[in-house]
Amino acid sequence: MKSHTTAHRKSGLWIAAMVHRLSGLALACFLPLHFLALGLAIDGEAQLDRFLAWTANPWVKLAETTLVFLLTVHLLGGVRVLLLETLPWREGHKQLATAAVAAAALAAIAFLVRAA
């Protein structure tokens, strides 16, 4: 049945849960690569120079910015869920989730500005 089961997915908190899940998955794929690159870099000075030159590449910068966004949004989203599940109930989770996304976006922009 087509349209039967999707209307509820337009809600902000449903999207927040999905962002949390997908950012977690993306981090799981992304982070090993990130550490591999770092590991290569500390193997030697020549390697490090080459690595630094590589990170100057705008695409790499963009990827790292995405990583910063994913990390922050996943971290803050996780804190929100922990608060929801362990502290006495409070309303306003939509606002909290929006704030988490905004903070993550700010962190990513700050990273990009500093890296540029």
């Binding site: 849960a17 599940e85 362990t86 989770h93």
Partner: peptide, 27 residues
């Protein structure tokens, strides 16, 4: 904690709130 239950309940109840309570009690 999708909150879809709370958004749709015609009686404006919050099952997600009850469930959060259960999570706390069981913890």
């Amino acid at each position: 904690s999708h909150h879809s239950c709370q958004e749709h309940c015609p009686k404006a109840l919050s099952p997600v709130r009850s469930i959060a309570g259960l999570k706390r009690r069981s913890l």
